[in-house]
């Protein structure tokens, strides 16, 4: 194994430890980007032109690990299904409705919807996102 390999393994191990210890998404991203940048910079000096492709693949891989784990953390924090299971385990039956209401609040604060006389309506940004979501549902064959 080369020094580049060891750096890659070390980076992934460090990111896994940070993922376990840090629960805040922004802090995890900051750590992840810092680790990736540090590994990228340190290893780039020791790489000749023949191994540059390997360096790019490894660095992109470490960055993808950070990105993927960020999504996993977000899902663990925000997933209504998981929170429902947790609520059921703790016999908090109002949690599900509360989480769904929270999504409506999120949509308002993100300016995706506005309140009208007829109810919630999409803003122009919401319409754009809705179009993208509809296209993605179609492409990924997700039935709604």
């Amino acid at each position: 194994m080369t020094a580049l390999d060891w750096c890659g393994i070390g980076a992934v191990a460090l990111i896994a430890v940070v993922f376990y210890l840090v629960r805040t998404v922004v802090v995890f991203i900051a750590w992840g980007v810092t680790i990736t940048a540090a590994v990228g910079l340190v290893t780039s000096r020791a790489i000749d032109s023949q191994r540059s492709a390997e360096w790019v693949i490894l660095t992109l891989g470490v960055l993808a690990c950070v990105f993927g784990l960020t999504i996993v953390r977000l899902m663990l924090l925000r997933s209504v299904s998981l929170r429902l299971l947790a609520a059921l385990a703790g016999t908090r039956d109002d949690s599900f409705r509360h989480d769904l209401d929270g999504r409506l609040q999120d949509m308002r604060s993100l300016r995706l919807i506005r309140t009208t006389a007829a109810g919630n309506a999409l803003t122009p940004i919401g319409h754009s996102l809705s179009g993208i979501v509809a296209a993605l549902y179609l492409v990924f064959r997700i039935e709604r």
């Binding site: 390999d5 992934v12 992109l60 891989g61 993808a64 993927g68 960020t70 899902m75």
Partner: peptide
């Protein structure tokens, strides 16, 4: 290109896609 770089990349790519 050795297995470590490809494995790290592929693992990260799968994690991202799955997420």
């Amino acid at each position: 290109i050795g297995p470590v770089a490809v494995t790290v990349f592929w693992g990260g790519a799968f994690l991202s896609w799955f997420g």
